[in-house]
């Protein structure tokens, strides 16, 4: 009851399955298999410093190319950004060194319940899988990207329904037709509540007879 170690294989759920093998990437939860998963952890740990290094570089280029208005006195518009960029540079180096020297399992490799750790007695309905389900990732991120680009053309009702459908697929829903119905219902209700009742402007797109 307290720990959720059993692998849930949900096929008979009443409305939809939320099984683990979303996107065709089943991840058997065995700590001994961590050998191949180490890569993911290292990748994750190094990706954030990498992004931040790129950001610091962007700040640096901006600092050099910035046009200062006439008569700017000492702590001008460059002052704080310069400190931030320098700070990021130092911290990134320190963090990369720390990660490379680390012996303990990296954050993304640890298989533990979603709350805290076992010693604190937390176990939930959710447990972490080792590694990343790239199939789910692609459905969620790709779905949002397509939604963003096509929204003005498709309009809110169709675009949001598409997004809803993709994300529920990313979460392992395997009833495409039922999902379509629910997705259209959700996006239509949102359109009625927020566009018609609250007065936010959402695009009508195709269904509105033009774009």
């Amino acid at each position: 009851m307290s720990t959720a170690d059993t692998t849930p294989e949900n096929t008979g759920g009443s409305i939809a399955g939320s099984g683990p093998e979303a996107g065709g990437a089943p991840a058997p939860e065995a700590p001994s298999e961590a050998g191949g998963e180490k890569e993911v952890g290292l990748l994750a740990e190094l990706s954030v410093p990498l992004v931040l290094a790129a950001f610091a570089l962007y700040l640096l280029v901006g600092l050099v190319t910035m046009d200062l208005p006439e008569g700017t006195t000492f702590p001008g518009p460059r002052f704080v950004p310069a400190i931030v960029a320098a700070g990021i540079a130092v911290l990134v180096i320190a963090q990369v060194v720390t990660v490379l020297r680390q012996r303990a399992p990296l954050a993304a490799d640890r298989v533990r319940p979603a709350g805290r750790d076992e010693t604190e007695g937390i176990a939930g309905t959710v447990s972490r899988r080792p590694g990343i389900a790239w199939g789910s990732f692609a459905w969620a991120v790709g779905g949002f990207a397509v939604f963003s680009v096509t929204l003005p053309f498709l309009g809110w009702v169709l675009g949001a329904a598409l997004l809803f459908w993709c994300v529920s697929r990313a979460f392992g829903s395997r009833r495409p037709l039922l999902d379509v119905v629910i997705a259209l219902a959700v996006s239509s209700v949102a359109y009625i509540c927020f566009d018609m009742a609250l007065g936010l402007s959402l695009p009508s797109g195709l269904l509105g007879g033009g774009f």
């Binding site: 759920g13 409305i15 939809a16 939320s18 969620a140 779905g143 949002f144 990207a145 939604f147 963003s148 680009v149 929204l151 003005p152 809110w156 949001a160 997004l163 809803f164 459908w165 994300v167 529920s168 697929r169 990313a170 979460f171 392992g172 829903s173 999902d179 629910i182 997705a183 959700v186 996006s187 949102a190 927020f194 936010l200 402007s201 959402l202 695009p203």
Partner: peptide
């Protein structure tokens, strides 16, 4: 069901951002 819950949250993200500044670029920044 979890898939619908999180799909709903995602749709709401898009709704909120598009309602405050209706442009494709803001959605991509998001």
């Amino acid at each position: 069901p979890k898939p619908y819950l999180y799909a709903g949250i995602t749709v709401f993200c898009g709704l909120g951002i598009y309602a405050t500044s209706p442009s494709v670029s803001d959605l991509l920044i998001l």
